[in-house]
């Protein structure tokens, strides 16, 4: 069984995993709206920037993005300025996962906005609303229910993908348990890890199911 030190180590690892996933989903959702609006914008510049952003962050491996932020940026900085500069691994993880989640969520949000009937925007304009008012008060609120399921999906993916941070000197849940398994030669730690991941993803699933029902209250 686990001794107290191990228990706390696993607890700390779980917190690291959760922190990264939660920070990423929140930043991802907020900036995802911005990038999605850029993709929908009539402005060619906004459109191109958003397209490029999504193209890069969806098109390259998450692990590579993590390496660029954690390993490459300090080297680039050193070459450019001659001064050393270290990135806190937790910050690097927050940034990399947030940037990555933004790209995925932007596409989800864009599709949700485009799925709202065009008559809604016309009715808003006919009532004198500006594009911004129509988006924030009429169109985007109608996407919430449609966003819940893919958002839950993304959060579950993020929670599991955080195991990549073991490569940048962070002790997340998986790395903590793997270290214990190697040190003791016992497989039971992997079962603990699986149980905790399943426990967390179950909570996400249940909470998002409830949210979806609540948000759809106006749909008969």
């Amino acid at each position: 069984m686990l001794n107290e030190t191990q228990l706390w180590a696993i607890f700390d690892g779980t917190i690291v995993t959760l922190e990264i996933a939660i920070v990423a989903i929140i930043f991802g959702a907020v900036f995802g709206v911005v990038v999605a609006l850029g993709r929908l914008s009539k402005s060619k510049t906004a459109n191109a920037l958003s397209w490029f952003y999504i193209w890069f962050f969806r098109g390259t491996p998450m692990l590579l993005q993590l390496f660029i932020i954690y390993y490459a940026i300090p080297i680039i900085y050193l070459d450019a300025t001659g001064a050393t500069f270290t990135v806190d691994p937790m910050i690097a993880a927050f940034v990399a996962f947030s940037l990555n989640a933004t790209a995925y969520l932007a596409e989800i949000i864009r599709a949700a906005i485009e799925s709202i009937d065009g008559g809604q925007m016309e009715a808003s304009k006919a009532l004198g609303m500006s594009y911004r008012q129509a988006m924030t008060k009429i169109i985007i609120p109608q996407t919430y229910k449609r966003l819940v399921a893919p958002l839950g999906n993304e959060l579950i993916m993020l929670l599991k993908d955080t195991s990549l941070v073991s490569t940048i000197a962070l002790f997340d849940l998986l790395r903590t348990t793997k270290t214990m398994a190697s040190a003791t030669g016992s497989w039971i730690y992997y079962i603990y890890a699986a149980a905790i991941y399943l426990f967390l993803t179950t909570i996400i699933q249940v909470v998002f199911d409830i949210m979806e029902k609540k948000l759809g209250i106006y749909e008969r």
Binding site: Q120, A123, A126, L127, M129, I138, P141, Q142
Partner: peptide, 29 residues
């Protein structure tokens, strides 16, 4: 906005109650 418009497909805002549908434009515009 001197012109009010009624559409073939109503285009009510489904996420708002009847009264909120009626008040939203006066409130925000």
């Amino acid at each position: 906005t001197e012109l009010g418009m009624v559409f073939q497909n109503f285009n009510l805002f489904p996420h708002l109650t009847v009264i909120d549908n009626v008040t939203i434009a006066p409130l925000i515009v």
